[in-house]
Amino acid sequence: MSTEAAINLEDLPTLRQQTICGEKVYQLEDPTAYRQLCERLLAAGYDFPQCLSGVDMEYGLRTVLHLRRLSDQAELTLWLDVPYDRPHVPSVSDLWGGVDWHEREAYDLVGIHYDGHEDLRRILLEDHWTIHPLQRRYDTGGYLIPDWQAKPWPDWDAIAKEKEEAARKAAEAAEKRAAAAKAKAAKAVKPKEGEGGAKKPPLSEVKKTSDQVAKPKAAQTADDLTKIKGIGAHYVALLKEQGITRFEQLANLSDDEAKRLEEKMNFKDRIAREQWREQARALQEGKS
């Protein structure tokens, strides 16, 4: 059983999970839930505070916390968005001493107030400074940008839906193009007809799906390999080059094949160490 499962996430309001660039991100909007989640993460062994940053998102202020678990080097990211008119975030400097100065810095430069911090003073700028320079409403000279307007608070449900929709559309377009390419190959005499059949997707989609077009069969049944611990977006791309896109393929690798793969892709016995094949088998069984 992984420790990930042991963290109770059920009762935390506004919690969203996503994977960006192969990294797990917990997104929150409720400050109390942020504090609760932090306490649970510390209990789950996330003992090393890597970084805490403040980001002005133009609709509000975001605290980004990066944690690491030294026992297995697992990394995790937390986002907490708070509105401009109430920039209060519970401090976690009592849980991890290492975020103490990071919180002071985020208060100093971005203007997020960390409630419960025992010494929340400006740290880099002088004590009498009046502005928070990393807010987007100030230019590099520290002057207010005259017609600066805050953006509306984003509708995260709609954004998630949109993302899903875009992914689905891209996959569809890839399928269409693959079919068109097939038709084109079949009707080699009349090459123009097949091409006219599929609508040319916008440039961004072509870029996204060009890999899938090259291997249409794999694209239809590709699994989300990032579910396997140890595989990130980068390795997914590498594996795809070698023609591996499904759990089944990974699970059925023989020792020799795995070794060859490792040599080709500079993995250096990662497959065995991180148990990719076993994980893939489990995921494959869970799927079918």
């Binding site: 660039c21 980001v55 980004v64 990066h66």
Partner: peptide, 21 residues
């Protein structure tokens, strides 16, 4: 847009990390 990454390396003084949004 919306992509973000935290990467770190072990420099002589310790963990130097960069967070890019």
């Amino acid at each position: 847009a919306g992509e973000q990454r935290y990467r770190a390396a072990e420099i002589s003084r310790g963990q130097l990390g960069v967070y890019i949004h």
